[in-house]
Design a protein around this nucleic acid. Structure first.
Lengths: 163, 163
DNA sequence: TGCTGATCATCAGTATACTGTCAATATGTC
DNA sequence: GACATATTGACAGTATACTGATGATCAGCA
């Protein structure tokens, strides 16, 4: 049996586990109660007002079922607004609220601190190399997960699913 | 706002997401219904018969609450045996069953294939470097998560929790 | 021996993540 | 314009993961 430390899968899980823990502790220390997903969703919607859920899911590479619950909780917290889309009655247009915008602005330093903390053991060069290798591995495996990253073009159309 | 691709936390989640998807598809293709955690737990118990749950959690760096559910499901599937420990009546001694051993043997090629697949975009050198950097970052952040890795010494004693 | 603090397993509660399915609605084609 | 097909959002179900609490038990010590 191979050592766990030789298994990319095990290392991936451990690193992500630490990343999430660091995110939580930094966010909490700054006085916010946002999870990593919630932050990513909020930031994406802030940058793309009127987004629908499927496009949002594609932009941050989450499953659309998962995003439903995430958006629910953000709406409940008053950070997001979900209204029926005018152009497509199946879709819901997502918009950030004023409170959401304040939260996003306020939490950003904590998020950036967390990103630095989770690679505190690496030099700058090593951190850059780690990110390069992760990006490369992810690009090669993008289509292997149910929630691949989708480039959203400006007009809201999505790339066809290549499943 | 920084690009997601510059955020170690985002990359970590994406990579792990792909890793889990690859594990599942390989395991399923081989005819097994085991999750990554379940596999890790089964392998650890196979190598250390009579393990209790807390020590197991420390060995594979999972939260002890999570491990409870994982062990439950493995017992239900008939792959594990959970008996009261003789030496410590609080603890449960975990042992792999014959069926569990067969499952472990049978699934191992699929697990190894999955480990290769999730880094298919990298050269051997790059894969080794990625694993080295992940190990380094993890070592520096080990104590930051609720479920740090604990070296179990041979006699079943654990390192003292440093919380 | 009796007490105190630590440890093991479990429970309740919350939030991801995924598979699979379904109703409502769009869209492309004839 | 009717229809086959695809898409959006939702739901049910399963499995991680975590926080915080509790009961049972153990180990060290007065």
């Amino acid at each position: 049996m191979k050592d766990n430390n030789e298994m990319p899968g095990h290392l991936a899980r451990r690193f992500q586990q630490i990343a999430v823990a660091v995110f939580h502790s930094q966010a909490e220390a700054a006085g916010y109660d946002l999870t990593p997903v919630q932050y990513a969703a909020l930031a994406a919607i802030s940058a793309n007002p009127g987004l629908d859920q499927v496009t949002l899911a594609g932009m941050i590479a989450y499953d659309r079922t998962t995003i439903g619950g995430v958006v629910d909780r953000l709406v409940q917290k008053g950070l997001l607004e979900r209204t029926a889309s005018v152009k497509d009655r199946r879709a819901r247009a997502l918009r950030i609220t004023e409170e959401g915008r304040q939260t996003l602005t306020g939490i950003t330093p904590a998020v950036e601190a967390a990103q630095r903390l989770m690679i505190q053991g690496l030099s700058d060069d090593e951190a850059n190399e780690l990110m390069r290798l992760l990006r490369k591995a992810i690009a090669a495996g993008n289509e292997l997960s149910r929630a691949p990253l989708r480039e959203a073009d400006a007009k809201g159309g999505q790339a066809k699913a290549g499943r």
